[in-house]
Simulated scan of single mutants.
Amino acid sequence: MFSKKSIVLLILVFALWNCERDDICAESTPTTPRLIIEFNDINNLENSKAVRQLTVIGIDENGNDINTLISRTNTNEVSLPLRIIAEGVTNTSRYKFIRDADFDMDDNPETASNTDIITITYLPEFVFVSRACGFKSIFNSIGINSENDDSIWILAEQLNTDNVENENNAHITLFH
Protein backbone atom coordinates (compact mmCIF):
# COMPACT_ATOMS: atom_id res chain seq x y z
CA MET A 1 0.00 0.00 0.00
CA PHE A 2 2.57 2.63 1.12
CA SER A 3 6.20 2.47 0.19
CA LYS A 4 8.92 2.82 2.80
CA LYS A 5 9.82 6.22 1.36
CA SER A 6 6.23 7.42 1.76
CA ILE A 7 6.07 6.28 5.39
CA VAL A 8 9.38 7.97 6.27
CA LEU A 9 8.27 11.16 4.52
CA LEU A 10 4.93 11.09 6.32
CA ILE A 11 6.63 10.64 9.73
CA LEU A 12 9.03 13.49 8.96
CA VAL A 13 6.17 15.82 7.98
CA PHE A 14 4.26 15.04 11.19
CA ALA A 15 7.39 15.52 13.32
CA LEU A 16 8.12 18.92 11.80
CA TRP A 17 4.48 19.98 11.94
CA ASN A 18 4.31 19.30 15.70
CA CYS A 19 7.37 21.42 16.54
CA GLU A 20 6.34 24.78 17.87
CA ARG A 21 8.32 28.00 17.92
CA ASP A 22 7.52 28.25 21.65
CA ASP A 23 9.66 25.19 22.45
CA ILE A 24 12.79 27.34 22.79
CA CYS A 25 13.04 30.35 25.10
CA ALA A 26 14.50 33.23 23.10
CA GLU A 27 17.44 35.10 24.65
CA SER A 28 15.53 38.35 24.19
CA THR A 29 12.72 37.16 26.48
CA PRO A 30 12.71 39.12 29.77
CA THR A 31 13.62 36.92 32.72
CA THR A 32 13.95 37.58 36.44
CA PRO A 33 15.46 41.06 36.74
CA ARG A 34 18.46 41.92 38.88
CA LEU A 35 18.42 44.85 41.28
CA ILE A 36 20.18 47.86 39.70
CA ILE A 37 21.98 50.16 42.14
CA GLU A 38 23.64 53.37 40.98
CA PHE A 39 26.11 55.50 42.93
CA ASN A 40 25.83 59.29 42.96
CA ASP A 41 27.76 62.17 44.48
CA ILE A 42 26.39 63.31 47.86
CA ASN A 43 27.52 66.87 47.07
CA ASN A 44 25.75 66.99 43.71
CA LEU A 45 22.86 64.51 43.86
CA GLU A 46 22.28 64.31 40.10
CA ASN A 47 25.91 63.45 39.26
CA SER A 48 27.07 59.89 38.98
CA LYS A 49 30.15 59.05 41.07
CA ALA A 50 32.18 55.87 40.74
CA VAL A 51 33.14 53.86 43.80
CA ARG A 52 36.84 53.09 43.96
CA GLN A 53 37.74 49.38 44.12
CA LEU A 54 34.22 48.20 45.03
CA THR A 55 33.67 44.65 46.19
CA VAL A 56 30.15 43.35 46.84
CA ILE A 57 29.63 40.18 48.85
CA GLY A 58 26.28 38.47 49.45
CA ILE A 59 25.77 37.57 53.11
CA ASP A 60 23.29 35.40 54.97
CA GLU A 61 21.01 36.29 57.90
CA ASN A 62 23.84 35.62 60.37
CA GLY A 63 26.30 37.91 58.57
CA ASN A 64 28.32 35.06 57.04
CA ASP A 65 29.70 35.57 53.53
CA ILE A 66 27.82 33.58 50.87
CA ASN A 67 29.57 34.63 47.65
CA THR A 68 31.49 37.47 46.07
CA LEU A 69 29.34 39.10 43.39
CA ILE A 70 31.69 41.92 42.35
CA SER A 71 35.40 42.12 43.06
CA ARG A 72 37.59 45.24 43.11
CA THR A 73 35.89 47.21 40.36
CA ASN A 74 35.74 50.97 39.84
CA THR A 75 32.09 51.47 38.94
CA ASN A 76 29.11 53.77 39.28
CA GLU A 77 26.47 51.03 38.90
CA VAL A 78 25.98 47.41 39.93
CA SER A 79 23.31 44.81 39.23
CA LEU A 80 22.70 42.24 41.94
CA PRO A 81 20.52 39.14 42.15
CA LEU A 82 17.84 38.99 44.83
CA ARG A 83 17.37 35.75 46.79
CA ILE A 84 13.97 34.08 46.63
CA ILE A 85 12.90 32.13 49.69
CA ALA A 86 9.13 31.98 49.08
CA GLU A 87 6.48 33.81 47.09
CA GLY A 88 4.10 36.14 48.93
CA VAL A 89 6.21 36.60 52.08
CA THR A 90 8.84 39.23 52.76
CA ASN A 91 12.24 38.07 51.53
CA THR A 92 15.59 39.64 52.37
CA SER A 93 18.92 39.94 50.57
CA ARG A 94 21.94 41.35 52.37
CA TYR A 95 25.16 42.60 50.83
CA LYS A 96 28.50 43.90 52.06
CA PHE A 97 29.59 46.92 50.02
CA ILE A 98 33.34 47.32 50.49
CA ARG A 99 34.94 50.52 49.19
CA ASP A 100 38.74 50.63 48.64
CA ALA A 101 38.92 46.83 48.86
CA ASP A 102 42.53 46.84 47.69
CA PHE A 103 43.58 48.68 50.87
CA ASP A 104 43.08 45.51 52.91
CA MET A 105 46.23 44.03 51.43
CA ASP A 106 48.40 45.52 54.18
CA ASP A 107 47.96 45.53 57.97
CA ASN A 108 47.86 49.32 58.28
CA PRO A 109 44.54 50.38 59.93
CA GLU A 110 44.81 53.84 58.38
CA THR A 111 44.55 52.34 54.90
CA ALA A 112 41.82 49.79 55.63
CA SER A 113 38.85 49.33 53.37
CA ASN A 114 35.43 50.60 54.40
CA THR A 115 32.45 48.22 54.68
CA ASP A 116 28.74 49.07 54.84
CA ILE A 117 25.96 46.48 54.84
CA ILE A 118 22.82 47.00 52.78
CA THR A 119 19.65 45.00 53.45
CA ILE A 120 16.98 44.84 50.74
CA THR A 121 13.46 43.61 51.59
CA TYR A 122 10.83 42.70 48.99
CA LEU A 123 7.83 40.52 48.17
CA PRO A 124 8.58 38.19 45.23
CA GLU A 125 5.85 37.35 42.76
CA PHE A 126 6.11 34.59 40.15
CA VAL A 127 4.86 35.52 36.68
CA PHE A 128 4.31 32.98 33.90
CA VAL A 129 6.31 33.94 30.79
CA SER A 130 5.70 31.04 28.38
CA ARG A 131 5.79 27.28 28.21
CA ALA A 132 9.39 27.33 27.00
CA CYS A 133 10.64 29.99 29.44
CA GLY A 134 8.58 29.02 32.47
CA PHE A 135 8.24 31.60 35.24
CA LYS A 136 10.15 34.73 36.12
CA SER A 137 10.10 36.64 39.39
CA ILE A 138 9.31 40.28 39.94
CA PHE A 139 9.91 41.98 43.26
CA ASN A 140 7.31 44.22 44.90
CA SER A 141 7.37 46.54 47.93
CA ILE A 142 11.13 47.13 47.82
CA GLY A 143 12.70 48.45 51.02
CA ILE A 144 16.29 49.35 51.90
CA ASN A 145 18.23 49.67 55.13
CA SER A 146 21.93 50.37 55.56
CA GLU A 147 24.17 49.38 58.45
CA ASN A 148 27.46 51.21 58.65
CA ASP A 149 30.67 50.59 60.49
CA ASP A 150 32.52 53.39 62.32
CA SER A 151 33.57 55.16 59.14
CA ILE A 152 30.48 55.51 56.97
CA TRP A 153 30.90 55.80 53.23
CA ILE A 154 27.29 55.30 52.06
CA LEU A 155 25.79 58.54 53.33
CA ALA A 156 22.22 58.23 52.01
CA GLU A 157 20.02 55.97 49.95
CA GLN A 158 17.03 56.61 47.71
CA LEU A 159 14.43 54.20 46.34
CA ASN A 160 13.71 55.07 42.71
CA THR A 161 10.84 52.58 42.38
CA ASP A 162 8.70 50.37 44.59
CA ASN A 163 9.00 47.35 42.29
CA VAL A 164 11.72 45.57 40.36
CA GLU A 165 10.12 44.38 37.12
CA ASN A 166 12.90 45.04 34.58
CA GLU A 167 16.49 46.25 34.28
CA ASN A 168 15.77 49.43 32.30
CA ASN A 169 16.63 51.94 35.06
CA ALA A 170 18.30 52.01 38.45
CA HIS A 171 16.02 50.86 41.26
CA ILE A 172 18.11 52.33 44.09
CA THR A 173 20.58 55.22 44.29
CA LEU A 174 23.29 55.22 46.95
CA PHE A 175 25.03 58.52 47.69
CA HIS A 176 28.66 58.76 48.80
Rank of each mutant, 00 (worst) to 15 (best):
T75Y: 08
A112N: 12
R72C: 04
G88L: 10
T92R: 06
M105A: 15
D116M: 10
T121R: 08
I98Y: 06
T121E: 12
I66W: 05
T111K: 12
V78A: 03
N108M: 04
R83E: 10
T73N: 14
T111M: 09
I120W: 00
D116F: 07
D116H: 09
N76F: 05
T73P: 05
N67D: 09
S79P: 03
S71G: 07
I117E: 14
R72G: 02
D100Y: 15
L123K: 08
P124S: 03
T121A: 07
I118R: 02
N91I: 01
G88H: 12
D106L: 12
I85E: 15
M105W: 14
E125D: 01
E125S: 07
L80K: 01
V78S: 02
R99W: 07
L82Q: 05
D100L: 15
D106P: 02
T68N: 08
V78L: 03
L69Y: 13
I120V: 10
D102V: 09
D106Q: 13
K96S: 12
F97G: 03
N67F: 01
E110A: 00
N67V: 07
E110I: 02
T115L: 12
T73R: 13
I84V: 14
R83G: 08
T90R: 10
L69K: 07
P124Y: 00
F97V: 06
E125H: 06
P109T: 00
A86R: 12
I70A: 05
L82K: 00
I117Q: 14
M105L: 15
R83P: 07
F103Q: 14
Y95I: 02
F97A: 01
S79Q: 09
P109M: 04
N76P: 01
I85C: 11
T75W: 02
D102W: 08
M105Y: 15
D107A: 15
D116W: 08
N108K: 09
T121I: 10
I85Y: 14
R99V: 11
N114W: 15
I66S: 06
P81I: 15
F97H: 05
N67Y: 01
N67W: 04
N76W: 03
D116S: 10
R94S: 12
I70Q: 02
T119H: 05
N76T: 05
L69D: 04
E87M: 09
N91L: 05
R72Q: 10
P81F: 12
D107Y: 14
I120G: 04
T119R: 11
E77F: 12
P124T: 03
P81L: 13
P81G: 14
D106N: 14
F97D: 05
T75I: 06
N108C: 07
T119N: 09
I117L: 13
P81M: 12
I117G: 11
V89R: 12
M105I: 15
T92M: 00
S93E: 04
L69P: 04
N74M: 10
I98S: 05
T75V: 13
S93V: 08
R83M: 11
F97S: 02
A101Y: 00
Y95Q: 01
E110C: 00
L123T: 07
T90H: 06
N108G: 06
T92F: 03
S93A: 07
P81V: 13
M105S: 15
D102H: 11
N67Q: 06
T92N: 02
R72F: 03
L123V: 11
S113C: 13
A86C: 03
I66N: 02
E110V: 00
I84T: 09
T92I: 06
N91K: 01
P109G: 06
T111D: 11
